[in-house]
Simulated scan of single mutants.
Amino acid sequence: MYRPTVSDEYAQRIRQWHENAYAQARAEAGDGQTFDYLGLTLVVPPDVHPINAMSHLLGEAVLAEVRAGDRVLDMGTGCGVNAILAASKSTDVLAVDVNPHAVATARENAERNGVADRVEVRESDVFSAVDGDFDLVVFDPPFRWFAPRDLLERGSTDEDYRALTTFFRQVRDHLRPGARMLIFFGTSGDLGYLERLAAEAGFHSRILANRRLKKDSWQVDYYTFHLSLP
């Protein structure tokens, strides 16, 4: 069961931040968006989580981390961006998402960027449709723990961190010896809870990238973490 590591006051600030961010995302979604991002062309429909100004912190880490022989899992793939980046080096990438529209979008974007033969996309609730084990797992999870109102919001909210908790409790069953993980998160979510889950699962964590954004008189820090087992 999720127990916040932040104060009630801080949780309220996160909720206000989320409401503002969601309203902006909904307005910008329109009939869909096209992004030129790290050499890719990505088409994102209005009910799939878009690329944002901090996405490159994870994308650049994916490009730096993937090895030619890696089997890669992109958990919560969204528009398929990190799976497609991974496929620039790996020939064996599995991308999964609970949102069926994201699954279709990721397949289309993999085809658009010439890596459809390297990326398999499945609809999966965390590990429900994932088999086998992996050398690298990439996860850009929803930051907030609120109940989503629609599919777009589901990309940024995970009610009571059910999916995040399930991920850390099951991921070790899907890791090969020496496996690594890349996880993106920020202080507009309960970062302390993620760190607690990672520690309880026995992972060593280090920061690969960090940026600070100030908005609405509040600063948010974004991090790309590299996780591994001792």
Rank of each mutant, 00 (worst) to 15 (best):
Y2P: 05
P4K: 07
T5Y: 06
T5D: 12
S7Q: 07
E9F: 06
E9D: 14
W17M: 05
A21V: 07
A23P: 00
A25P: 00
A29T: 09
Q33N: 15
L38V: 03
G39W: 05
V44K: 02
P50D: 11
I51P: 00
A53C: 12
S55N: 06
A61C: 12
L63P: 02
R67G: 07
R71G: 08
L73P: 00
L73Y: 05
T77C: 15
S90R: 10
A95K: 03
A95D: 10
A95N: 05
V103G: 09
E108M: 02
N109R: 00
A110G: 14
R112K: 07
N113D: 10
A116Q: 07
D117V: 01
R118G: 05
D133P: 02
V137A: 03
P142A: 11
R144E: 12
R144F: 15
S156A: 11
D160R: 13
Y161E: 10
F168H: 11
L175Y: 03
A179I: 11
R180S: 12
L182Y: 09
L182N: 11
T187F: 06
Y193T: 07
L194A: 06
A199T: 11
G202S: 05
I207G: 03
D216L: 10
D216F: 14
S217W: 14
F225M: 12
